[in-house]
Each structure stands twice: as structure tokens, then as C-alpha cells.
């Protein structure tokens, strides 16, 4: 039977490994931040709730992609800009989209901070376990 301290060290290491895997997946998935803005005709949004996955959701109903932004981890930015029939940027949709980009960026920062704090606490626990 293993000693309790060994059990605990092993549990902390397992937790650290799970966290490291999660951070690795996060870093892989966060290579690009994608923000998309769509519009739907009146009273169409509620049908989106019943979709089965993230890709299906925006293929259902009469959803129209109006603006998009991709920000890569190294800072490259690609944008899809909404234009009116006259060839002028639709500023209302564009502002709406820019606000979503800002909100998405802030959210990612918060998630990174939370993961960073978890990683820091786990490292401290690991150091204590090994010490």
C-alpha cells in the first residue's frame, strides 16, 4: 500500500498534468481569435438555440455573415468588412462588430489570467510536494 504522502504527490502531479494538457489545448486553440458578426431577420434568433453544434448554429435560419475578424497569436489581423450596396462601409454593423472584438479580447485575457493563476498555484503545490 502506498504511503499517503506518495498518494498525494501522485494526485498533485496528475492534476498538474491535466492542467498542462488543458493549457496546451488552450494555447493550440488560441492560435487565432475568431470573431464573427451575423444578422438575422426579425424573430429568427431563437431557432439558433436548438442547433446541435457551433457550426450548425450559424447555418440555420436566415443568418447572414456581416463582419469578421481573425487575430493570430503573432498579431496578424484579417478582417471582413460590411459594405452597403453603394460600396460604403456599414458603420453601424462595423461598430457592433468592433465592440464584439473588444469584448472577445478581454474575455480571452481573463481566461488566460485564470489559467495562469491555476498553473502558478499548481507549481507552488508541486514544489511543496517535492520539498
Amino acid at each position: 500500500m502506498a504511503e499517503p504522502r506518495e498518494d498525494l504527490n501522485s494526485a498533485v502531479r496528475d492534476y498538474a498534468k491535466a492542467l498542462a494538457d488543458q493549457i496546451q489545448a488552450f494555447v493550440k486553440d488560441m492560435a487565432t481569435l475568431e470573431v464573427r458578426t451575423f444578422t438575422t431577420p426579425e424573430d429568427q434568433i431563437q431557432v439558433l438555440v436548438k442547433a446541435k453544434n457551433i457550426d450548425d448554429i450559424l447555418n440555420e435560419g436566415n443568418v447572414m455573415l456581416r463582419a469578421g475578424t481573425s487575430i493570430s497569436f503573432d498579431g496578424d489581423v484579417a478582417q471582413l468588412t460590411p459594405m452597403d450596396a453603394s460600396g460604403v462601409i456599414n458603420t453601424a454593423v462595423w461598430e457592433l462588430h468592433q465592440q464584439a472584438v473588444q469584448q472577445a479580447t478581454q474575455h480571452r485575457e481573463r481566461m488566460l489570467k485564470a489559467l495562469g493563476e491555476a498553473a502558478e498555484s499548481t507549481l507552488r503545490a508541486l514544489r511543496a510536494a517535492n520539498g
Binding site: 488552450f26 486553440d29 488560441m30 481569435l33 475568431e34 470573431v35 464573427r36 458578426t37 451575423f38 444578422t39 438575422t40 431577420p41 426579425e42 424573430d43 429568427q44 434568433i45 431563437q46 439558433l48 438555440v49 457551433i54 448554429i57 450559424l58 443568418v63 457592433l96 464584439a100 472584438v101 469584448q103 472577445a104 479580447t105 474575455h107 480571452r108 481566461m111
Partner: peptide
């Protein structure tokens, strides 16, 4: 419903707005 936003766990946003 006037707006719906889908947020991936890494922060990707997809927002749909009632016109």
C-alpha cells in the same frame, strides 16, 4: 430574442443580431 452570442472556451465570438 434580439441578440445571441456564442463563445468558444478560448474566447472566439460569434454573434447574431436581429436586424
Amino acid at each position: 430574442a434580439i441578440g445571441s452570442t456564442i463563445v468558444g472556451w478560448t474566447g472566439d465570438f460569434k454573434s447574431a443580431w436581429d436586424e
